[in-house]
Design a protein around this nucleic acid. Structure first.
Lengths: 166, 166
DNA sequence: CCTACCGATCGGTAGG
DNA sequence: CCTACCGATCGGTAGG
């Protein structure tokens, strides 16, 4: 709290005029992150077209949210464990709903035939989200890969795989 | 330190008869984890056969190390940031070497023709490692997926993708 | 929003 | 390996 206050040019104790507790402040940041991810997913599923189009929009949206505010995204993705039981469960519920959006789109893809018929939807969603949730750990916006190419790379990897096409 | 001592039936201060500092203890655990991952990778690359066989061995080895000691693996994967500069850089160097093993195997796969000729090797390695490094976050050994099936699912996802085969 | 402060916790030491 | 303790840090409060 003293570090945060210093960045605002304040003393640590002055923060308590604006926030009731350290955990309340953390909750505010986490909820802002949760809202950003959920709004992105809600926009993606409204896209008409194939499930693959919506999957691409989910991936692009996730990358966009991460790059729009790295600190906020990281806080949402990694710091919920510092919350007390009730509030942590609420955050996990939001994340579950976000992940369910991916599963729904994958199921639509199987039904419409743009995705493999033998897909294990829950585990596939986990793999795709594993790739997305790691982006903040390694991606450098000033590197050789601009965000659009990153999205292409993720979607291409997931849809086509790395094996030589038979 | 007091919590750790309590699990051993000791007082906090007694630990300092066995270890010089809290960070030394962390380093010991991280180095044990690093050694486990590296030995797994060294075994995998010695496998004769196709690069795909070695990639499968890398994936199976990684999953095996994670499941053999979840706490040790998590400490290696996530807690290096708590180390001071020099020691953190040493851990990052070990992880870089581990990841380089994946890139080497992928390159061999491209050269021998079992993997797509247009593969972006560094980013592909990052995606595969993203999936592997997230396993400890969601996998339950008592769930519906035994470790062999998990390895199959990861390798299948990476090689074949989720798109309908054309 | 600041000064002054409190109680708890924590890594670690001295001395046995 | 324990008792007794220290100095630093931290979340937070009182009172202005």
């Amino acid at each position: 709290m003293r570090d945060l206050a210093a960045e605002l040019g304040l003393k640590g104790s002055s923060l308590y005029a604006h926030v009731d507790s350290k955990e309340d402040l953390l909750v505010e940041v986490i909820e802002a992150g949760a809202a950003a991810f959920q709004e992105s997913a809600d926009r993606a599923v409204r896209i008409e077209g194939t499930a693959l189009d919506r999957l691409r929009a989910l991936v692009a949206g996730h990358v966009g949210v991460v790059l729009a505010d790295l600190d906020e995204a990281r806080t949402f993705l990694n710091e919920a464990r510092a919350l007390d039981d009730d509030r942590r469960k609420a955050v996990i519920a939001v994340r579950d709903r976000y992940e369910a959006t991916f599963r729904t789109v994958l199921e639509e893809g199987v039904e419409e035939g743009t995705l493999r018929a033998d897909l294990d939807v829950p585990i596939t969603a986990t793999f795709i989200l594993s790739i997305l949730n790691a982006v903040d750990r390694w991606y450098r916006p000033d590197g050789r890969l601009d965000p659009d190419r990153l999205v292409d790379a993720i979607v291409g990897f997931c849809t086509d795989g790395i094996g030589r096409a038979p």
